[in-house]
Design a protein around this nucleic acid. Structure first.
Lengths: 89, 89
DNA sequence: AATATATTTAGAAAATTATCTAATAATGAA
DNA sequence: TTCATTATTAGATAATTTTCTAAATATATT
């Protein structure tokens, strides 16, 4: 759950697409996997990395696990980017 | 020079630290390398990745090559982050 | 022209990350 | 309890990235 974890998580195009999918609403792991030409365990791994970075939350609902986007972590990334644009000069 | 290149470039802590160093002013490749416990070729590689992503510019000055920060690329990253925070409803 | 300095390029080794198949866990329904 | 469904974990392989040493390039100086 560090800034490094967040940047690392955002570095992969599959994971960025997952976040983009979740923008429109929560989805189960299976629904997310449907959007990719990749096995479910691979998607599960990506979801775990996103979860570790605090970019998504998960909640079991019966047989399924529902994932939702958490954009609060973006604040730290934005802060880092903005700080870099202001010289200490 | 794609958004993917930018995210990939930002995913490494050494490269983020290089950007942070350049925030205070331009530096030669050698001066940058001094800040790290790593060989010059390794730093040179990181600088090349940052350059490829459009995050830094380089300019030869005599024997040295001076690197400077380019934050204009950040706009694209920011846009991506902000877009993600606004649902398509 | 020869030498020194600053940096990069080339190529290999090490480390990390992404992906797959097979097996396991958790829930729900018959 | 047994079977089906959803999803994850484990472990192996493949791919990518990082880092190193050695060699090459570019400029400046003597």
């Amino acid at each position: 759950m560090s800034l490094n974890d967040t940047f690392k998580a955002l570095a992969d195009p599959t994971r960025r697409k997952i976040l983009d999918l979740l923008k429109d609403g929560d989805l189960t792991a299976g629904q997310i996997a449907e959007h990719f030409d990749m096995t479910k365990p691979s998607i599960s791994n990506h979801l775990n990395i996103l979860k570790h970075a605090g970019l998504v939350w998960d909640e079991r609902k019966g047989q399924t696990i529902v994932y939702s986007l958490n954009t609060t972590v973006f604040q730290d990334v934005m802060k880092w980017l903005i700080d870099l644009q202001q010289s200490k000069g």
